[in-house]
Structures are given as structure tokens and as C-alpha cells.
Design a protein around this nucleic acid. Sequence first.
RNA 1: GGUGGAGUGGCCGAGAGGAUAGGCAGCGGCCUGCAAAGCCGUCUACACGGGUUCGAGUCCCGUCUCCACCUCCA
Length: 462
Amino acid sequence: MALQLYDTASRSVREFTPVRPGAASIYVCGPTPQGPPHIGHVRSALNYDVLARWLEHNGLHVTLVRNVTDIDDKILVKAAAEGRPWWEHSARYEREFESAYAALGCRPAAISPRATGHVTQMIELMQRLIDKGHAYAAEGDVYFDVRSFDAYGSLSGQQLEEVQQGESAAAGKRDHRDFTLWKCAKPGEPSWPTPWGAGRPGWHLECSVMASTYLGAEFDIHGGGLDLVFPHHENELAQSRAAGDPFARLWMHNGLVGMAGEKMSKSLGNVVSIPAMLRKVRAAELRYYLIQPHYRSFIEYSDEALHEAAQGYRRIEEFLRRTAARGEVTPGELPREFVDAMNDDLATPKAFAVIHNVVREGNAALDAGDDDKARQAAAAVRGMTGVLGIDPLSELWAGTGADDKARQALAALVEAVLEDRARARAVKDYATADRLRDRLLQAGILVKDTPDGPQWTVADGR
RNA sequence: GGUGGAGUGGCCGAGAGGAUAGGCAGCGGCCUGCAAAGCCGUCUACACGGGUUCGAGUCCCGUCUCCACCUCCA
């Protein structure tokens, strides 16, 4: 079965067929870095990271572009309030987004272009739209004429007549639903020269321009959060199509993350920061939590659910560690059911069920002493978790490598204590054995006896 | 007012006309010096009211509740 994806525009699941055979081009709406990222932003990035990994696993050369809208009203307002330049403000939070993505194993995009670096292309697009009668300049602003484009509303299913008052009414607008392509410069605000006067980009224009600059006039997938369908993506689509570009073939929208019945958002202030999350669970566990539910479903954040996810991850991790203790485990082939699940609109919940089934079979094999079967299961688990970016034995999550001198020293000390304990246990001196184990525990070292001898980990206290 | 989506067992979360999802937690058992892990077994479901059908979480109609978007948002 080939990959099927849900397409917002056609409201149906469609087979993915790339514009250019062997390659996949994806444009994802990234952040407007006006403040620190929260888990909703990261969820979005993670969903497309999983998509990209899956496409690559299927042999496609993936080009993923995630933009940064580095100028907008709020950035200007907040920067001014802090008495800092707008570009410093957005650059600072852009770095926070990038590091949050990286912390969760989200691989970098092919490029993360900034809106302000593409003003030349914006001017070109506006000129094309004006030439075709789809846009007009008025009092220094440039607007898109929504009534000139019949398909306006097709992506989101909005009927033009029913759309309520959009952006704040402006003097030069012909119709209150027309949206702003370019904003006239105001005193003290940054601006760039254009044939229609100095100003700065409106929202929407930057994405049309950056998508076509890097991916071409027609590309495979445009993604973003569900809250961007209208008006942002509707407007992008209108601009690009009206200008004559075929634009995205398929539109994907990820579900949002909520708290206490409301969506998490900067404006509501009910956000959970990434560093705060990473004090509760490890990065791989947070990633597991965010990608296990289907990407289109709404996640109602809760500590309990987060910890359950962490438990689930640890179960997989335990199994792999246990098996690896008996011999090297390398990533192997993916079970058919896993492949089918992923091809079915990235059905990660089913994919996770497959992983856990194989883990259980592998654990049973270990208990039965069937190491070959266990190793096979572990190989499959590494393969599956690898594609999802949560392989506990991967370099990314396995912890510091053997090159870490402090860790080596720690290992030597712990092993020495464990040897003493083993001697005590051998003569059934359990009082001494337990005292040694408790001493390690006090130092943060958790010891577990397994059929393969004692295993120790640095307890994370979670 | 318009548009889209959701209500599943203690919790999370799939599925979809005749079903062992999976995880976490609970209970019983095995294993274990203890602990942990693991294995086996097991209890709580499908918002409500009608209807279609031999048979409905699954289809149809109605009701209720919740969420998102139409203002910045991933």
C-alpha cells in the first residue's frame, strides 16, 4: 500500500504522488518568534519530522522548508516594550525554537527562511497580482481583492458572504474581507521600499513567496497547524493561484494541544514551556508523548498522560537494554503491520501498538531463553522506533557515549560496588547486599537484578 | 450567523456492521533472597433517544455536551 494522506482541501484521504518522482517537497508554516515555544509548536514540528522521516525511509529525497516569520505586529510591539530592536527580539526566540526542536530530535529543515530576506520576491508577486487584477494599492497599502478570485474559500470551506469582519477595516479597502499583502510604513517602524511606497510585509505573503522560491511554483505538501487553515492558508492559496502558480498539491494540518479545555496559545497565556517539560520527563519521552496520538487529533495536555507516555517509552527502552545486554542489536526490517499503519495517514497509534506487541513477544522470548527470537524482535523495534525518532539505543537518546570520561569513572566505581554486593549475595549476606544497593541509590544510582546480572542506571528521580 | 471536528472502559488512546487494538493503573498467578523488570490470566466501554439490519461503538434521524476557525496563533 502506498502512502495515503488526509488532504484538507479535498477533505479526503489521497494517495501521495510526488510532483517530481523520487523527491518530496514540503513547506511547513513555522513560528512567528515573538515569544518562547510551547509544546504545541513542537508537536507541529515533530509531526512533519515524522512525515519527512517516513518519506525518506521510503526512498524519497525530502526537501522540507520551515519558514520563520520574523516580522509582524506583535514582534514590533514586544520589542519596543523591551526597548530592543525588533530583529534582536525575533532572532532570540528563533534560536529558542530551533533549540527546542533539536532537543526533541526534530531534524533541521533543509532551510528555515526568514520573511524579511524575501522582500524582493514579495514585490514581484504583488506586481504579478496587480497586473492580473487580483490586487491593488491604496494609500500605501497593497490589498488582495478576494472577490476577484472565484475559488476564494475553497480550502477552508468558508463562504465569502458568511465570513465575518476580517482584519480591521482600513480606509483604502474595497471590501472589508480583502486582506493586506503589504503594510504602509508607519513612523518609527522598519520598512522596505516598493513601487507602491515604503512598508513591510503583511501576514500570508511571505509563505507564498518562500514556498515557491525554494520548492517551485508547484510542490507536494503544505503543512501547518489546524488554526492556520483560515485565513492564513486560504490567503496563501488565493495569492499563489491567482498569480498563476499551481502551489501545494496536498494540504496537511496537525491538531492542536490544549490545556483545561482550551487550546494552548501565546495569547491565552496557558502555555507549557519546553524547559519546564524537560524537567518532568526526558526529551525522548516528551517526543513519544507528542507523536503517539494521531497527528490530526487534539491533545489535551495532562501530567498523567505525559507520565504514562514516559512509562511506555521506558518499557521499550527496558526491553532493548535487556536484549542488548546479551549481544549487539542493530535496527532491522519493519513489520508489515507497522508499514501499513504508517502508510495509512501516519497512523502512529497503530504503529505504537505494533511496537508494543513486538516488545511483549521479545520479552517473552527473553524469559524463555530464546535469544535469537528476542534479538529479532529487538531489531524490529529499533527499526520502528528509529523511523519515529525515538529509538532508545540510537546515538540521539542513548545518553553520553563511552568517550565521556566522567561517565567512565562513574561506571568503574559503580561496578566495584556491585562486585562487593555480588560477593555478599553469594554468601546470602543480604543485609550487606541491600546496604550497598541503598548506598548507590542515595547517590542516584538505581540497581536492578536481572537474569543477566545487575543492571544500573542513573535514576532520573521522575 | 457560517465552517470543520469530537464524545470509547479508572486514565490515555485506536478501531469501525458479526473485533483479542495498544499503553498506564487495578486484581489473581508465575518468577525473584528482597526490590525492580518480565511473563500468563482477568474486571470496568463505546454521550443520550429513536430507527435500519438476522446482527450497530460501527449505518440513518434527532438531542445534548465539548473543541477549533471566521482577530494574532502550530
